[in-house]
Design a binder for these strands. Structure first.
Length: 114
DNA sequence: AGCATGACGAACA
DNA sequence: GTGTTCGCCATGC
């Protein structure tokens, strides 16, 4: 376990993901941007990979910028992510969130800091 | 130390 | 509008 700043990044990512409302989704890039590392989208995904077992962190509500379930392969089952989203009323078609723009929850906007 | 990879994103051809 | 390349930051070999 390293004690680099990256550790802090993890906690921040989890914190933001936990704030994603039921039935809404956000993106890796949006989270990264909210945390001040606009180009650390990959790190967000990386953090999600570690957040797998944490039920507190709704990783299934995090998709890529076009609403694609790019991380479904990393769940218990490749279809688990879609199932969880479906249970929240989010329609997924061909691994893509329908009405993504409407369901998109951007922390930078929703959690406006000032 | 250098090279390859990745749950991304934006730029370019 | 689609396909490819580069940048990003951390990890693994």
């Amino acid at each position: 376990m390293k004690e680099t700043k990256g550790h802090r990044f993890f906690l921040d990512v989890y914190d933001v993901v936990r704030l994603v409302p039921y039935g809404r989704v956000t993106t890796y890039g949006a989270i990264a941007r909210y945390l001040g590392s606009a180009s650390a989208a990959r790190m967000v995904g990386w953090a999600m990979n570690a957040a797998q077992g944490m039920q507190d962190v709704p990783a299934h509500r995090v998709v890529n910028r076009i609403g694609l379930l790019s991380g479904k392969m990393h769940f218990e089952n490749p279809f688990k992510m879609q199932e969880m989203l479906a249970s929240e009323g989010i329609v997924v078609k061909t691994d893509k969130v329908i009405n993504f723009e409407q369901l998109f929850w951007d922390p930078v906007v929703e959690l406006q800091i000032g």
